[in-house]
Design a protein around this nucleic acid. Structure first.
Length: 273
DNA sequence: GTCCAGGCTCTTT
DNA sequence: AAAGAGCATGGA
């Protein structure tokens, strides 16, 4: 399928830190999501999406958040702050990808106090070791993210062997909870406060990771995750007080603050201010 | 060697 | 409630 939209950029999304399942190819990216595989190739404002495994186009439309009007979002976010304006211009093709809550929790437990390269490698090893083979492209095999059932017998030590470090037992506990019937679907009906507290009950999920899960996995676009990068940006560029950054965000970012956060994070990390 | 990465848990004040 | 130590691991 062909996507014409000036507010999507593959390279930027691959570097966005939202997902760890975009694999560079000779001409674009392989993306694995929702048990499907697609190849995305950018030509100016047009993206050619070739479905390699799975045939459900609507899942890609939802994953890429195509039904949201990012032109309007840009308009409404512009003029608030010079740094945000620069971030919007620089990361024009950034958007919020709608991801699977289970996979979000797994990968963002791994993300804590970690860097994107290491997270990506660990997630890839998990998929290769325990996920279903889906397809091959340019001589490289691609695997689905492993289900709770596929991970049920994986030991803490085996998780460690995937390079997840001390987060091994958090993954183990979460998988066991999933196999015991934890229902992430039902979380969709919870309001933000209840969803947050439900997520915080999981070991390895704290304030920041919970916000990421809510934003990327449950479409709560007003959640504003604050990691070490955002902390730097808020203090240096917005002159927020180190003490209560969440308070600053609450009072200064209203409209789709989570989406605004994505532009700020991408810009801040790329220019390494 | 030290610091840092999309921080969190557990313990101590 | 708030602050501090410890945590796997690899790259800068």
């Amino acid at each position: 399928m062909k996507i014409k939209n000036e507010f999507i950029n593959c390279e930027q999304l691959a570097q966005s830190g939202q997902t760890f399942r975009w694999y560079p190819t000779a001409s674009g990216y392989i993306v694995v999501a929702n048990h499907q595989v697609a190849h995305l190739r950018q030509e100016g404002e047009v993206i050619h999406l070739e479905m390699l495994y799975g045939e459900q186009e609507h899942l890609w439309r939802h994953y890429l958040d195509l039904d949201r009007d990012y032109g309007e979002i840009h308009q409404r976010l512009q003029g608030f702050h010079p740094y945000l304006d620069k971030a919007l211009a620089y990361g024009k093709g950034i958007r919020v990808l709608n991801q699977d809550p289970y996979e979000m929790i797994m990968t963002f437990i791994i993300s804590a106090n970690n860097n994107i390269v290491r997270i990506t490698n660990a997630v890839d090893k998990l998929a290769r070791d325990y996920g279903d083979y889906l397809c091959s492209y340019e001589g490289i095999d691609y695997y689905d993210f492993p289900s709770p059932a596929q991970l049920e017998d994986v030991t803490v030590e085996a998780f460690r062997a995937c390079g997840v470090g001390y987060r091994d037992r958090y993954l183990y506990d979460f998988v066991q909870a999933m196999c015991a019937g934890l229902d992430l679907e039902s979380y969709k009906q919870l309001d933000d406060v209840k969803l947050k507290s439900a997520l915080l009950r999981l070991k390895g999920v704290g304030e920041k990771v919970a916000n990421c899960i809510m934003l990327f996995g449950y479409q709560r676009t007003e959640r504003f995750p604050i990691d070490t990068w955002m902390k730097k940006i808020l203090i240096q560029e917005f002159h927020a007080e180190e003490k209560d950054l969440q308070d600053y965000v609450k009072h200064h970012f209203k409209f789709h603050s989570g989406i605004a956060q994505q532009y700020l994070f991408y810009y801040g990390r790329m220019v390494k201010s």
